[in-house]
Design a protein around this nucleic acid. Structure first.
Length: 423
RNA sequence: GGAGAGGUGGCGGAGUGGUCGAUCGUGCCGCACUCGAAAUGCGGUGUACGGGUAACUGUACCGGGGGUUCGAAUCCCUCCCUCUCCGCCA
């Protein structure tokens, strides 16, 4: 959520920035200005009304003490009248405040200056391309066939137990999952991230804090009896640790990492996108989250990108890094880098990580603040990234490392898997 | 799930209808004393939304929401949470 200050301080700049995200913000901002002005006017009136009521109530106390009953009664009548008026004003003020809130949450975050212009994924900027292709056998198999061939992932069993998009990992497949999780967590903790094991269900307040609610409600599984939501990413519980928190400047940076299963309804997905491991309702992911001082948040983002890159590199997969264009970047993000690994058998790039700086957009909702050197309250910056999401990494590992003998495990993973080949 | 006790400022803990945004202690910050520190003394120390160049000032906030009342931290309703005991249980 943008702040009023961001929108009102330099309106033209705000409109230009939002245009890059494909939003015509001029009418919305005009409406916001109008509502904000009305809100202030109502607030002044309401506060004055309350002030009079408070004065009168105190006066009544004093008059009663002096035994001046009649004068007290007269004041009582006045307060009754004032109460009536303030109730009306309060209702109006709330209505205006709600409209204002509703208008502000419609606007996406400002994109950073270096975000490329563009509307679709075609316009994303490839900032790095590392092709480490290995020799594959003739007619390489896609991962869903490899999974069946080596009996390590059972998609049909998942359908029996739950439904499509809930695979069952077996034997070396299950062990590979565990190995990757541990490998990723170790990489992250070595880089200074504090390991967290959060709840994988969250309440409404947390869903709102990171922006899943109310807009993406349909994307989350909802346990209605207790009104809990299954998390779509560890970002939700981990970032919400700092909801309603006021930090000190010296507390920064805050670096956290967590492994969790992630649950996404993915309503509306179909076709090759959902084949095999490409898109699931339940999947494993290790996430990194940083809270940063505003002046260094882009340096922090670069650090996170370099960190994720080091992990992808260690796995020996062909990858590229994209800087997302204005049209493809998420609603909440100011700058996002996507990591994609190449799936040789599917002949397509698979997104395995998305690393973003949200600047103060999330912090505003979370009320995550700090006191600066002048003791003034400021919003912190939040950042997060996948480090990494498992399914597509697994897909790429299986496809790119297939040999006539079996599937080779990358050197870095062998200490975690305890085997060097799946056959 | 049942019964009971609670939820007050960074922390501890007063406060059962008016002068309470809240006694006091502690922590923290500043000043004094000191070569320095400790101890001691004095002063300051919440958040949000407004008004004001500023000093300052208005309003709201004592778990959340609602109600009673001229007036609510205090009384009532409701929800959430914590603790103790019982039940169940990985």
């Amino acid at each position: 959520m943008l702040t009023l200050k961001q929108l009102r301080d330099d309106k033209e700049l705000a409109i230009r920035k939002l245009a890059k995200k494909g939003v015509d913000a001029a009418p919305v901002i005009a409406k916001i200005e109008d509502l904000d002005d009305r809100r202030k006017a109502l607030q002044i009136e309401l506060d004055g009304c309350f002030a009079e009521q408070n004065k009168a109530a105190k006066l009544i106390g004093a008059l009663m003490g002096q035994g001046k009953k009649e004068e007290a009664e007269a004041q009582k009548e006045r307060v009754t009248w004032l109460k009536n008026r303030s109730a009306k004003l309060a209702a109006e003020a709330k209505e205006v405040a709600d409209l204002l809130q509703a208008a502000i949450v419609l606007l996406p975050n400002f994109p950073a200056d270096i975000v490329p212009e563009g509307k679709t994924a075609e316009d994303n900027l490839v900032v790095k391309l590392v092709e480490t292709y290995t020799e594959l056998p003739e007619n390489p198999l896609p991962h869903w066939e490899l999974a069946r061939k080596y009996d390590i992932i059972d998609f049909d069993m998942g359908v029996k137990l739950t439904g499509a998009g809930f695979p069952v990992y077996k034997g070396k497949g299950a062990r590979l999952q565990r190995a990757l999780i541990n490998f990723f967590l170790d990489c992250n903790t070595k880089a200074g991230y504090l390991e967290i094991e959060p709840p994988i269900m969250v309440n409404e307040a947390s869903g709102f804090g990171t922006g899943q609610l109310p807009d993406k409600e349909g994307q989350m599984y909802h346990a209605t009896v207790d009104n809990f939501y299954l998390i779509p990413t560890a970002e939700v519980p981990v970032t919400n640790i700092y909801r309603d928190v006021i930090l000190d400047e010296k507390d920064f940076p805050v670096k956290m990492t967590a492994y969790t299963p992630c649950f996404r309804r993915e309503a509306g997905s179909y076709g090759k996108d959902v084949r095999g491991l490409n898109r699931l309702h339940q999947f494993d992911k290790v996430e990194i989250v940083q809270l940063s001082l505003p002046e260094v948040s882009y340096a922090a983002l670069d650090g996170m990108v370099a960190h994720v890159e080091s992990i992808v590199k260690a796995l020996g997969l062909p990858y590229r890094i994209l800087r997302l264009c204005g049209g493809d970047i998420s609603f909440t993000s100011a700058l996002t880098y996507d990591f994609e690994v190449y799936s040789e058998a599917q002949k397509r790039w698979l997104e395995v990580s998305s690393v973003s700086n949200f600047e103060s957009f999330q912090a505003n909702r979370l009320k995550l603040r700090y006191k600066d050197a002048d003791k003034k309250m400021q919003l912190a910056h939040t950042l997060n990234g996948s480090s990494l999401a498992l399914p597509r990494i697994v897909a790429a590992l299986l496809e790119n490392n297939q040999t006539a003998e079996g599937i080779r495990i990358p050197e870095a993973l062998i200490p975690y898997t305890g085997f060097d080949i799946i056959k």
